[in-house]
Design a protein around this nucleic acid. Structure first.
Lengths: 303, 303
DNA sequence: CCGATCCGATAGACCCTGGCTATCGAGGCA
DNA sequence: TGCCTCGATAGCCAGGGTCTATCGGATCGG
């Protein structure tokens, strides 16, 4: 039993004439005769009453024809849907983004993405690195914007741009007087994010990994978001190290920003499953974001 | 694109494993791999993301899967319906019957038919011969019970039983005194049915075709039904000639019945389109009716 | 009454396709 | 490192779908 046979069947019921039905189907008349005869044998019933003059569907055929029409319609729907879906640059694209990047990057790239990939619907999803990787693994995300290396063969990643870190200081802080701040100087009273944020680890590493954390809150505060962290800095509770894209927000809060001596930073990259079939979409998204942010390191380096 | 491929697709989405899906489909694993690869190429999109460890449907596949399921379900519905319909002795059977036969024959054969062919649903349709033949031609009837010869190759017919005619007389009628009535004696004051009833023509033929019709109403009455005709006879307006099966009804009305000298009668036959594919059903119906009415001529001949 | 025409069925040949087995290649695990 | 699993690939074969050519029967027009 075959969808093609169903189309033949519908053509014959429509035209009441094997020859014209065959023409409509783009096959020869014997082909239709033979195939429909076979279909009748498979179903064990006569589908047409062949009179010398006319070809009339039997009552059994009329009982079946609704299902036949439905089956063919579903097949056509599959083809039509496939046509819509076959462009890898169209459709939904579920993009994971780490929380220290999302609020500052998304506003910059949303419009360019929409312009460059008008048929792609971006579905951003904000979570920490490990969660994003889990969701990638579970096929719940198509790709993720991360600030860490991705190793192993499971994922493929593409570096998009370098984002320098900046020292974030309360205006009255002693270090605020300097033009450039050494990473190690921040260690004294640095405030950091909660566990799981890659920025936390990177900030600690930059300021001298095992170094003792000074300050009143350095050892206890585990800010859940960069926004909270900035508020604490603005309130004078300590210093921190922020990603360059957050500079504008920090400045608006009255925080003093200084470039770092070692020019420490992070590389933002896009990662996807190596087996992800819409690699083209991932690369296109990466390219648009990269193009928009290229030269960001140079521009904000000296502020 | 093929229903078989759809089944393969559903199996793989269900099992997430080519080998097991192949087993469930009763084919080898390479067969599934190849066919699904082809399907992907035809649709122009990836249906599965093949990881070394798992086989996961792509989001495009999940968009399509509903239609795929529906198409397969419709195909299965066709098979199931065909199984129900493939017995020619099952289902509806639209049976045309002439009006001078229907009310007297149907009560006799309905129960035997139901018993002999329990899966066959009889749909009786009462009309005059020519209308029945038109409806047969138009595939609006499956077969028809007639009392006339059917010639030509368009229809096939099967004689079921012979039905003798009887003279129907008012009790006080002079002919009622005789044991047997000659057909020609009825001509004097015979009442007949309206045009189109085969019984009208047969009655006139029996009583001497072109002979002048006597009596007050003979020339003008065109009874629409045998029932009307019998009422007129019972009321003493004239005589008539009735089919044997109507004997009981006529006697109940006080009409005197007498056998005819020439033993004129009609043959009831079942007719269907020669191309009718459920010939078996028609023949079965004919056989049951014939069996029930066989020997009717002999039994009612002498009353 | 006979040839022309139409229509569906049939026959025979060809080629594609879908199925198989055998094997490969890449990971994962002991 | 060697074995096992699993999907992909290769190569072969059989069956089925399609074609052209033709038949058989019926209708129609001259």
């Amino acid at each position: 039993m075959n969808l093609r046979d169903f189309r033949y069947l519908l053509a014959v019921t429509e035209y009441g004439h094997f020859g014209r039905a065959a023409q409509a189907c783009g096959v020869s008349q014997p082909t239709l005769s033979v195939q429909l005869r076979k279909l009748e044998e498979q179903l064990g019933l006569a589908l047409f009453e062949r009179d010398r003059k006319t070809v009339v569907p039997t009552s059994a055929c009329e009982r079946l024809i609704g299902h036949v029409r439905a089956a063919v319609a579903e097949a056509d729907a599959i083809l039509a849907a496939a046509r819509d879906l076959c462009d890898p640059l169209a459709g939904n694209f579920r993009l994971g983004i780490i929380p220290t990047l999302a609020p500052y990057l998304l506003p910059l790239v949303f419009a360019p993405l929409r312009e460059a990939l008008p048929t792609l619907t971006l579905e951003p999803w904000e979570d920490q690195t490990l969660t994003l990787l889990d969701r990638l693994r579970a096929h719940e995300l198509d790709a993720a914007l991360l600030a860490t290396e991705v190793d192993g063969t499971e994922f493929t990643s593409q570096p998009l741009f370098d984002e320098p870190f900046l020292a974030a200081l309360p205006p009255e802080h002693p270090l605020a007087a300097r033009e450039v701040v050494a990473e190690s100087d921040l260690a004294q009273d640095i405030l950091v994010l909660a566990d799981g944020h890659c920025l936390r680890d990177q900030a600690l590493a930059a300021c001298g990994q095992g170094g003792t954390l000074g300050g009143a809150l350095g050892g206890t505060l585990r800010a859940a978001s960069l926004s909270t962290l900035l508020s604490m800095v603005a309130a004078g509770y300590g210093t921190t190290l922020i990603p360059g894209l957050a500079a504008g927000t920090a400045q608006d809060m009255g925080i003093v920003l200084r470039p770092l001596k070692e020019r420490t930073g992070r590389t933002v990259r896009l990662a996807w499953r190596s087996s992800f079939p819409r690699r083209a979409a991932a690369e296109a998204v990466g390219r648009v974001i990269g193009d928009r942010l290229r030269g960001f390191a140079a521009a904000t380096g000296p502020i």
